[in-house]
Design a protein around this nucleic acid. Structure first.
Lengths: 350, 350
DNA sequence: AAATTTTAGCCAAACGATTTAGCCAACATC
DNA sequence: GATGTTGGCTAAATCGTTTGGCTAAAATTT
């Protein structure tokens, strides 16, 4: 079975209105250059409405070079740790894009050469008019592909100061969380983090150190626990267990870079006979769906991925239109969600 | 700053090879209609390679009506309960699509009129060549929009027997889980489910009943606990607490339609002083990221969303090409993951 | 040798818009 | 009255392909 659409062309509208196609086009696109009499404009508008005319994207695209599609270049890992973030991100992009009828295309990226080629071809083809680049590494191969070719906005951090970026305020987030623990009286606060090749880890370390220093405490590198590679419950468990075995005296609090890591910390603590929050206060990140339902419920820093990406998309659309984007880098604030795992609850109750 | 691509046209290739554009086109597309001498073919291929020619999608699309883009029409709820499924789904679609260089476009749908209009326009514009329709309701407004207009495949269930659908084998899944509980000696097995307007709930009820009947047990509607609306820990908690309060004697096992519901069941059980798995065996669904890390770790039925959607995408591509799709409805099997919450572990250990 | 078929490849017309250059009144200016 | 100006519209080029129809030349048949 062949599926065919009918499709009213601009020519038919022109004939119906008794004018040329050029006139129809200029009425519909409201070009300043060519003026058209009010009476004629009405006739054209009326004819277009009556015939149900919709300009064909493809034809427009061919002529103007604008596809009205945005690309989301997202790293897709085999596990689904980042899935809530991805979900929110897509919602944010869709929300910003649909207002003007833009489409959102997913350009997955897992680091394979083959996908890089597909991305390149997508860009060369102008299948999208701009790209949202998620979480690029320092020497990300996608960056040179994009540069000078298409407008793009980085979601995350990017060392190039010319690039427009939108990111969570990770420094503030970590500072907030650390300050909270300091206020609860903790002085030995561990930091469980992914390797510092991830920019997010650097930023959060910065916030952690700032809070400590402002409180007059010196930074102790012995309290850092680096995971082997990535996020995940297992990774957090291993990293924190390692830390506990290394130290003579356990810390009284832990800041974990992600809720999955925090969950691992919880397990390691339990195994070591440390009670949370009585012996050990734990704070996570990202307010994952399960965070409210662990035992004990996890105090965590919520990030607003949907908003973040909505802003990024807005910026990208402006970039595509050629409008200048005001601040090159934008930070979205985060919010501390206090639950039981940090001990603030039990203090209140006592 | 204006971004412009260079773009080698077919005309330049034709000139370089000393042939007409028609010849170039037919060499590159391998048209059966027009024969071309081996020697000329070589010259054309060589010229195209040397100049780095890549046919422009947009121009091809305008001419042929094929965009080489697939649409994913996914329901996006405000909470991110479905995010792991969504993530896997996108990965699956991408995996199947990228082999032939197809793009994947997200057409979000939250039931708003405005989005329906956008979908309609997307279809009319032929911005995509086919659609993967996720989880349509019985009288889904997207269905009439699609029918007879574009090729599409339903991921989930669809009452229309003409429509190509791919779904998890929910009947088998529920049967598997129930049989497992029966083998462990349970005779009073509760079923916590979302309302039966969701096709998934109907299917899983069916599997549950089949397992019971094959074991010679009669189905008892009193053991059903329907949630108020949707998935989520809270929903599971409320539904199961309601059931416990309603029954004289609690069930010895529970099958919950989703891991989030199961987590709620766990909480309700704890509050009622029931120990899991000693007093109550619990089985969930979907093998969510947190399922392995609850207390106790959750026995659950894993579904293969990525594979599911990969198959669906393959079928859609075939449909677009006009090839007939062999079985109209395809079921992807599921797998029982045994952990501690069902009690099978402790039995083994004893 | 003439007639026919086959082969190889070219021409030009789409596809459906946008946009530039230009035409022709009508009106204003000196 | 000759010379701009301007408003209102159109014809035609263009974007980069695909493809049905066609034509020479070569090969084959009669």
């Amino acid at each position: 079975m062949r599926h065919r659409g009918k499709g009213v062309t601009i020519r038919e509208v022109a004939k119906a209105a008794g004018v040329s196609v050029a006139t129809v086009s200029s009425v519909l696109n409201g070009r300043a250059h060519t003026r058209v009499a009010a009476e004629t404009r009405q006739r054209v508008l009326e004819a277009a409405r009556r015939l149900g005319y919709r300009p064909k994207r493809l034809a427009q695209a061919l002529r103007t070079g604008l596809t009205y599609a945005l690309g989301l270049s997202v790293p897709l890992c085999p596990d689904s740790l980042l899935s809530p973030f991805f979900y929110e991100a897509v919602k944010g992009a869709l929300k910003a894009a649909k207002q003007k009828g833009w489409l959102v295309t997913i350009l997955g990226f897992q680091g394979q050469q083959e996908e890089l080629a597909l991305l390149q071809s997508t860009l060369e083809q102008r299948s999208v008019d701009g790209v949202l680049l998620f979480d690029p590494q320092d020497d990300d191969p996608r960056l040179p592909l994009l540069k000078g070719r298409l407008p793009f906005v980085v979601v995350g951090r990017c060392s190039d100061p010319e690039v427009v970026t939108v990111d969570n305020d990770n420094v503030q987030a970590a500072k907030l969380a650390t300050q909270h623990l300091l206020q609860l009286g903790h002085r030995r606060i561990a930091f469980v983090h992914v390797p510092f090749c991830f920019a997010t880890a650097q930023d959060r370390l910065m916030g952690y150190r700032m809070a400590l220093e402002e409180a007059g405490l010196s930074f102790d590198a012995n309290l850092l626990a680096e995971t082997e590679g990535y996020y995940g419950v297992e990774a957090g468990y291993r990293a924190f267990l390692g830390l506990l075995n290394r130290l003579r005296k356990p810390p009284t609090a832990v800041l974990a870079m992600d809720d999955t890591l925090a969950l691992g910390v919880l397990q390691a603590a339990q195994q070591h006979g440390l009670r949370v929050p009585d012996d050990l206060a734990v704070v996570g990140f990202n307010d994952s769906p399960f965070a409210a339902h662990c035992e004990p419920p996890l105090t965590t820093v919520r990030i607003f991925a949907e908003t973040l990406v909505e802003y990024a998309t807005d910026a990208l659309l402006r970039l595509i239109r050629g409008e200048p984007v005001a601040p090159k880098r934008m930070l979205v604030p985060t919010q501390l969600i206090v639950r039981a795992s940090c001990g603030a609850m039990s203090r209140k109750n006592n």
